[in-house]
Every structure is written in C-alpha cells, then in structure tokens.
C-alpha cells in the first residue's frame, strides 16, 4: 500500500468502523425485539413448553437433530415435525416411545430415553410450539 494511505488512517477505519457497526447491530437488535411479539409464538409458551425445552436441552437432542435448521445433521429437522406428523402430538410421543433400547442393526436409531407420560407431553408440546414460530416460510417443504 502506498504512503498516501497511512497506518493512522487504517487505525481510524478500524476503530470508527467497528464502533459504528457494533452500534448498528445493537440498534437492529433493539428493532428485532420490537418485531418479535408478532412472530415468536410466545403466546403458546406455557409451563409445559418450558419443561419441554429443558428436556430438549438436558438430553442434548440438538446433538443429532436440527431445530429451525440449527444443530446436527445426523437426524431429521424437528422445527416442522409437528406438521410432518399430521399435526399430532400423539404421533410424536409414539415415535419417541417406540425406539428400541439396543438400536437397530446397521442403522441410525434414536436412543430410548424412558420418558414418563408427563415428559413426553412436554417434549411434544415444545416441538408444537417451535413449529408455530414465523420462520419466513422455512423449511421449503414438509420433509424439513
């Protein structure tokens, strides 16, 4: 780089640019908070759903599945599993309950978590709640 462009100019671009764009990120984040009530399905965030999220976390479901496209890519997307299973929480529960303890020879298989009825309901309700979030029409189709 030529001498016309000095080190102090580069330094000023760094400090000025970083501070400006960090403040812009904060401003957009503030605006995002304003927009959320319309989109984030918080009205369905019940105590059962909260418990479901806790179970989702302490069993590390995101270690195999993705949720709204984030997580691991080893097992199906679950952000729209409620719709994929015919808008039925019972179908979700039945699937989770049906997993064989020792897996399936040669195949990927979800572990058997031995959830009780209340836990199964909580997880299913959590996935139903997640499916109600406005995701700008993602995923492209029911397969996730």
């Amino acid at each position: 780089m030529s001498e016309v462009f000095t080190k102090s100019m580069a330094r000023n671009i760094f400090y000025g640019g970083s501070v400006f764009f960090f403040l812009l990120l904060l401003a957009l984040t503030f605006q995002t908070h304003e927009a959320w009530p319309e989109r984030d399905n918080h009205e369905n965030l019940t105590d059962t759903v909260r418990h479901g999220k806790e179970l989702w976390e302490v069993n590390n479901c995101v270690g195999c599945h993705s949720l709204l496209g984030e997580g691991a890519y080893f097992a199906p997307e679950l952000g729209n599993v409620y719709q994929r299973y015919g808008n039925s929480t019972d179908a979700i529960k039945a699937f989770i309950m049906s997993r064989p303890k020792e897996g399936i020879p040669g195949r990927r298989s979800m572990p058997q978590f031995n959830f009780d009825d209340e836990e199964l309901e909580a997880i299913a309700q959590f996935l139903k709640y997640a499916s109600g979030i406005n995701t700008n029409d993602w995923p492209p189709n029911i397969q996730g």
């Binding site: 671009i13 760094f14 812009l24 989109r39 984030d40 984030e70 979030i133 995701t135 993602w138 995923p139």
Partner: peptide, 21 residues
C-alpha cells in the same frame, strides 16, 4: 477493520429462518 465492518452485521445471515424479522 474489514473483518468487523462486514462480520458484525454479517451475523444477520444466521437470523434468516429462526424467527427474526
């Protein structure tokens, strides 16, 4: 400078499909 100028707002490419506006 370019890393932060592009990268800070670039965070937005993670906000497409997770419920953000």
């Amino acid at each position: 400078a370019m890393a932060l100028i592009t990268g800070l707002i670039g965070t937005g490419h993670h906000f497409f499909w997770i419920g953000a506006p």
